[in-house]
């Protein structure tokens, strides 16, 4: 039973966190919304007149906008497909009895701890470089012409790099979920004559569904804002071939100094992320009840 005094103390303890987060959320976001209605370019001095939705019109008709939106979705869906399917298969494999399971786990997890700029540069130079990269050497050894990954298929290459970083995350979470599966249930199914395939589809997969949903939603939040990997590999190019929404907003606001236009783009990114966030919040909220 909480007393009156401890309730008051509780409120006092919670308030710094709440106030700080509230300011962090409301002040910059409010400013972004305000800027998005101004004609505001850091290169053009003078006052910044209110122009209504002009920036949004410019943003949506910018020839880079639709490609960037398309690239964002391709990047998210591509990485999700690789990491979720790969993660389920890997989790099933790692759940089997084997020698040195601990070391295998440690090796598989490692890429997740590599900072994005490092993994992007290592892949770009040491693997995907068409002259000295390891892939080029493999191609030449097998008698093919080396493939210039980042010029010929920039978005695909970035998907590969990002998927390498996130596969461990998906695997780890799905493995954790798999290990919480009651093995007696599986044995009972086996005794009733269920084969390996039907055990997978009728028992394991439904059990994994929840964890897989969490993996997909959380990764989506992070993948919508992939930035460093693009910055150090392709700078969004060639042309706009690997520009996603985050990179587009960055280049409009910090490279072209168009604060108004960049802010409008930022708001579009926020709305897009919120659509995903609603589903994620609902899942986590349900979990809080129990």
């Amino acid at each position: 039973m909480a007393t009156q005094a401890s309730r008051a103390a509780g409120r006092l303890m919670i308030s710094p966190a709440v106030i700080l987060l509230f300011l962090w959320m409301i002040v910059p976001l409010g400013m972004t919304i305000w800027f998005s209605f101004l004609r505001y370019n850091l290169l053009i001095p003078g006052d910044n007149p209110f122009v209504g939705i002009e920036n949004y019109q410019y943003f949506f008709t910018d020839p880079n906008f639709w490609p960037a939106l398309w690239n964002t979705l391709t990047l998210v869906l591509g990485v999700l497909a690789i990491t979720t399917i790969g993660g389920i298969l890997l989790a099933l494999l790692l759940d089997q009895p084997m020698f040195g399971q601990g070391i295998v786990r440690v090796l598989v997890i490692a890429p997740f701890f590599v900072m994005p700029t490092v993994s992007a540069l290592v892949w770009k130079n040491m693997f995907m470089n068409p002259v000295n990269g390891l892939f080029a050497w493999i191609a030449r050894t097998l008698g093919f012409a080396p493939f210039d990954f980042l010029s010929a298929a920039p978005l695909f290459s970035i998907i590969l790099i990002v998927a390498w970083q996130w596969l461990p995350f998906a695997t780890l979470i799905l493995l954790t979920a798999l290990q919480s599966l009651d093995s007696e249930q599986l044995e009972a199914a086996e005794m009733d004559g269920a084969g390996a395939v039907s055990r997978f589809f009728y028992i394991m997969l439904p059990h994994l569904a929840r964890a897989a949903t969490v993996v997909i939603l959380i990764q989506t939040i992070f993948l919508l804002s992939v930035f460093a990997e693009i910055l150090v590999t392709t700078n969004g190019g060639p042309g706009n071939a690997s520009t996603n929404l985050t990179y587009l907003v960055y280049s409009q606001s910090l490279l072209q100094y168009d604060v108004g236009l960049g802010s409008a783009g930022g708001i579009v990114a926020v709305i897009l992320a919120n659509i995903v966030a609603i589903f994620l919040m609902r899942m986590i909220g349900k979990n809080l009840e129990t």
């Binding site: 309730r7 409120r11 959320m25 976001l29 919508l224 804002s225 985050t246 930022g266 926020v270």
Partner: peptide, 27 residues
């Protein structure tokens, strides 16, 4: 000392994490 609004506060805190950084880059 959970209160009536504890769950709402937790969910609200989580929602601030969902905001993409690029949305507040400029300010």
């Amino acid at each position: 000392v959970p209160g009536k609004r504890t769950k709402d506060i937790l969910m609200w805190m989580l929602s601030t994490k969902m905001m993409p950084a690029v949305g507040v880059l400029v300010p």
